[in-house]
């Protein structure tokens, strides 16, 4: 197994059962990946933050008003003093002249008063964004959906930056298109129709906020149509670590790879075995890995995985086949 970094040791979760740290390996493998907070909870925190910001703004406004008031008071006092001295010196007829100046000063202060509405912006409500499109900075190249001609003309610098957040109406339209595709796919079982909607959506929102989700839906639709090679091609490009269903998609990729190239499929299966996956997925991982190990002639590990499968899923959906395979292997050994 490759290490995450050449200088760093192997993670405990990646240690084998034969290692000195096997107990820790088992423990760290079992600690799951925590889910992010649900959108409603994120929205509540967002609202609390908005409230704090509003109070900060109003405090700043109060400070501005107070400063303006102090300035006005100061200038009035200065004017009064000046007027008094003028009167005392017998030039009372000119005392009225400061009035336009006062007006001018007030006019000069007007912009600061005009700033108030600017500081009193309406707080936008939080619209949860479950899986934001975030570009990977790691070794894996970030996934880029098929961009339009206009977007391909953009500089490479712009391409490395995550897409700017869509305004709420754009995001809503994109979400609606994705929802339509998912309804076609899952409720109406119309994979072809779903693909058509996804094509339309891709033309409009090539770098949209939900591009990754759209690609995931495309994979599901292609698999439903039996277009496995195209599904695999997309899965090869997707940054699976950034997607909520990353484990499941990696398993799909492993199973698709297994058809042609068990060596590469094993890379995925090995990674998946160390993850805390749901039981139905883990079942497929163990079975798939054993099948691939048999394919590449690694009988010892295949037997180990088949036995592990039976130990964990004695009533599993592949249990009968696994028992048959084990019997076949022990027969050959004899």
């Amino acid at each position: 197994m490759a290490k995450p970094n050449a200088k760093a040791p192997r993670r405990w979760a990646e240690e084998s059962e034969a290692s000195e740290d096997a107990a820790l390996a088992e423990l760290f493998r079992a600690v799951g990946d925590p889910k992010p907070m649900p959108p409603e909870a994120l929205a509540r925190v967002h609202d609390r933050l908005g409230f704090k910001r509003a109070s900060r703004l109003s405090r700043r406004m109060r400070e501005l008003v107070m400063a303006g008031g102090m300035l006005l008071l100061g200038s009035s006092l200065a004017l009064a003093g000046w007027g008094a001295s003028e009167w005392l010196s017998g030039r009372s007829q000119r005392v009225q002249q400061p009035a336009p100046e006062t007006a001018a000063r007030k006019a000069a202060h007007a912009p600061s008063a005009g700033q108030r509405p600017a500081g009193n912006k309406r707080e936008t409500r939080f619209e949860p964004q479950e899986a934001p499109p975030i570009a990977s900075s790691g070794s894996e190249p970030p996934f880029e959906p098929n961009a339009t001609k206009a977007s391909t003309a953009a500089s490479s610098e712009h391409r490395s930056v995550p897409p700017a957040p869509a305004d709420s109406s754009g995001l809503a339209a994109e979400a609606l298109a994705l929802e339509r595709a998912l309804v076609k796919l899952r409720r109406e079982h119309d994979a072809q129709g779903a693909l058509a909607v996804l094509d339309e959506s891709r033309a409009l929102f090539a770098k949209g906020t939900l591009a990754l989700e759209a690609q995931t839906a495309r994979v599901d639709a292609l698999l439903a149509l039996g277009r496995r090679a195209e599904a695999l091609a997309i899965l090869e490009r997707l940054p699976l670590a950034q997607i909520g269903r990353g484990g499941e998609l990696q398993l799909m990729r492993a199973e698709l790879r297994a058809a042609d190239d068990c060596g590469r499929a094993l890379t995925d299966f090995d990674a998946l075995v160390t993850r805390a996956l749901a039981a139905p997925l883990m079942e497929r991982v163990l079975y798939g890995r054993a099948a691939c190990e048999l394919q590449v002639g690694d009988r010892a590990h295949a037997e180990q995985d088949l036995n592990q499968y039976l130990a964990r899923f004695p009533q599993g959906r592949f249990a009968a086949r696994v028992r048959g395979q084990l019997a076949k292997l022990s027969g050959k050994a004899q």
Partner: peptide
């Protein structure tokens, strides 16, 4: 083996502009 469960880095990059 590059494990997907081991993210190679924190998957957020951004420029300071417009934040």
């Amino acid at each position: 083996m590059a494990s997907e469960s081991v993210p190679n880095s924190i998957p957020i990059t951004d420029s300071a502009e417009g934040l």
